Computed example of a mutant assay.
Amino acid sequence: MEYNSKIYVAGHRGLVGSAIVRKLREKGYNNLIYRTSKELDLTDRKQVDQYFQEEKPEYVILAAAKVGGILANNDYPAVFIRDNLMIQTNVIDAAYQNDVKKLVFFGSTCIYPKYTAQPMKEHSILTGELEKTNEPYAIAKIAGIKMCESYNRQFGTDYISLMPTNLYGPNDNFDLENSHVVPALIRKFHEAKINSVPNVEVWGTGLPKREFIYVDDLADATIHLINNYSGNDIVNIGCGKDISIKELAEKIKTIVKYQGEIIYNSEKPDGTPRKLVDVTRLNALGWEASISLNKGLKMTYDWYLENEDQKRVDESAMGVKLGGIR
């Protein structure tokens, strides 16, 4: 990309999109375009077509999606599969119809089989059963990957699919009903501290292991891959290290300086036992994560404290955020 290339960041207010906008500006890219979900409904094909015809972006970074944690995925499966299929279909095809030079599609590590070998290699996609709690979302994301692959094969487009591991950082969703584990724990421990609550409940046994990457690292990797990679092979984005939920909870408890007890509710679902991505391909392409989990968690908590009075709330009645993958 040239520094004056016209770059459309879809989902620019979400966790991923906002980080990508920050990183693009930091690196000197000066011709960014975006719209809020109220200004441009990506599930509406007519609106999407009109926007692309008017703006003619050269590059598209598709960071918009319906996202949520275990509870939201379980309660609203139809919305997750419907809206994600609509968003990605509209944007990917509009990019083709309007001669976009390159498009980035974000999948998720939830697309991998529930019991696949660890660390998860890119070629393991579609080799086994998905985790039931987020199957509709995962199927939509797999369809997006295959759509990019198919357009590349048939039309010669340059669309790449990136698979981020669990993300966290500024502009995350801290709503306790539909957030992911890092923002949920940060808010739980913080509110328990200021309200002198003696214990904090954590869903599940605490035994599952997860990998986490700070969202600004993801943004940096994305820009690096736009400039250094083309092809149909998906690329995992992670740090190559994982941690148990119990260890994560203890880290966040320490950072927040909460003095109470952690109680694990084993009646709640654990989800996939382990999710660690193989980053061999990513590292071979010349990129490695640079922000440690301790540093990233501290920066995220600092951001939360600065923005506590403006906690992100749902934009829709069913409690799912449009604007960034998680």
Rank of each mutant, 00 (worst) to 15 (best):
N73S: 14
E191W: 02
S292W: 01
F174G: 02
G286M: 02
D270F: 09
V197Y: 10
N166W: 01
Q154V: 08
A192N: 07
Q88I: 07
Q154Y: 06
V320M: 13
N228M: 09
D99L: 09
D314C: 02
V256T: 05
K246I: 10
Q259E: 14
Y3M: 14
L103E: 10
Y3G: 07
K275M: 12
V235M: 06
M1E: 07
V200G: 10
L285R: 04
E129P: 00
G204I: 11
V104K: 02
M163H: 13
V67K: 02
S196N: 15
I245G: 04
G169E: 03
I213F: 03
L218D: 02
Q97I: 10
I255P: 11
D233R: 02
Y76G: 05
I92N: 13
V215C: 11
A72W: 03
P198Q: 12
G107Y: 00
K253H: 10
F52G: 01
A65D: 14
I92K: 07
E308V: 01
T205F: 02
K23M: 09
E250I: 03
K311S: 08
L85K: 08
N227R: 04
M86A: 14
I252D: 15
N73K: 10
G11I: 00
I111K: 03
R187T: 02
Y96P: 07
F106E: 00
D270Q: 09
P113C: 02
L207K: 15
T36K: 05
N228V: 05
S18P: 00
T280L: 08
L276I: 13
M318F: 15
N73H: 15
A192D: 05
L126C: 06
E308L: 04
R326E: 00
I243A: 00
L85D: 14
D93R: 12
N30D: 03
E261Y: 12
A221L: 03
I33E: 01
G296T: 12
A63W: 13
M163D: 08
P273V: 09
W203T: 13
T109R: 10
V182P: 03
K38L: 13
L225Q: 06
D75V: 07
F105E: 11
D83Q: 14
V104C: 12
N195E: 15
S266A: 03
I245C: 05
Q154S: 14
E122L: 08
S290C: 02
I139K: 15
